[in-house]
C-alpha cells in the first residue's frame, strides 16, 4: 500500500512546487465572435485551434481539465442543453426527441440508427443517459417490433435463438448494455448463468475482480447468483 502512495505524493509535490505560471488568454471579450473569426488571431499564434469538425468527440478531454477556460464563453447551460436536452436558446437546426432537444449526433430516424452508434463506443451513451433511459423506451416498445440479432420475432415478443450460443456470447460481450436495455434485472441470464440452478455457465471474465465488487456492495450483487 505504501509503495502505491509514494508515487502519488511525489506527483502532487511536483505539481505543487512547480514555479512557473502559464496564464491563459482571457477569452471573455471574444465570446460573441463566430468561430471562423477566431482564425484572425489564432493564425500563427502558436495555439492549436479547437472547436473544429470533431469537436463533439474532442471537447470532453479539454472541458474536464481543472485548467479549462470554457467558462470564459459558456455557462453550464451549454453543457446541460446538449447533455440533458435543455431547450432555452436551442438553434433552429436542432431537432427534438419528445420534449427534449436532440444533439446533432442523433441522426435522422434515430430510433432505428442508434443501435449502430450504441455498439460503437459503449461509454458514449452513458455520458448523457442513465441506463434507465434505455429501459424507459425499450419497456414501452412492443417486443415484437424489435429487430435483434440472435433473437427471433414471435407474435407476442422475442425468443432467443438457442442454436447460436456462440453468437449470443460474442454479441453480449461486445454490447452488453443493449441486453440491459430490455432485461434490466438480468432475469433472462439466470437460467444459464446462475451459480445456483440451471446450466451454471460461468459468465465472469478470466481475471474477474469479484472481491472488489463484494467489498463495495456487500453481497448485494453477488447474492443474485451465489449463496454465502
Amino acid at each position: 500500500m505504501k509503495k502505491n502512495v509514494w508515487p502519488i505524493l511525489a506527483l502532487v509535490a511536483v505539481l505543487m512546487t512547480a514555479a512557473v505560471v502559464f496564464a491563459r488568454e482571457d477569452h471573455r471579450a471574444y465570446r460573441d465572435l463566430k468561430l471562423p473569426e477566431c482564425a484572425e488571431c489564432h493564425i500563427g499564434s502558436g495555439v492549436i485551434p479547437n472547436h473544429g469538425g470533431g469537436w463533439q468527440q474532442q471537447h470532453r478531454v479539454l472541458a474536464s481539465g481543472p485548467n479549462n477556460n470554457c467558462y470564459h464563453c459558456h455557462d453550464q447551460a451549454t453543457c446541460q442543453n446538449c447533455h440533458k436536452g435543455g431547450g432555452l436558446g436551442a438553434p433552429l437546426s436542432a431537432s427534438q426527441w419528445k420534449r427534449d432537444i436532440a444533439p446533432e449526433s442523433h441522426r435522422t430516424d434515430w430510433i432505428s440508427i442508434h443501435p449502430i452508434q450504441a455498439a460503437s463506443n459503449p461509454q458514449q451513451c452513458s455520458r448523457c443517459h442513465e441506463p434507465r433511459f434505455c429501459q424507459d423506451c425499450h419497456g414501452k416498445q412492443k417486443k415484437s417490433e424489435l429487430t435483434i440479432k440472435s433473437h427471433r420475432k414471435t407474435p407476442t415478443g422475442q425468443s432467443y435463438i438457442i442454436v447460436l450460443p456462440s453468437e449470443h456470447a460474442a454479441e453480449a460481450r461486445r454490447n452488453l448494455a443493449s441486453c440491459q436495455a430490455c432485461h434490466p434485472d438480468g432475469d433472462q441470464c439466470m437460467p444459464c448463468h446462475s451459480a445456483r440452478t440451471g446450466l451454471r455457465i460461468n459468465p465472469h471474465p478470466r481475471d474477474f475482480k469479484g472481491r472488489n465488487i463484494q467489498a463495495r456492495t456487500g453481497n448485494r450483487t453477488c447474492n443474485v447468483c451465489h449463496d454465502f
Partner: peptide, 9 residues
C-alpha cells in the same frame, strides 16, 4: 457494481 451486468465478461 450494483447491477448484475457488472459481473459479465
Amino acid at each position: 457494481a450494483d447491477t448484475i451486468y457488472t459481473v459479465f465478461a
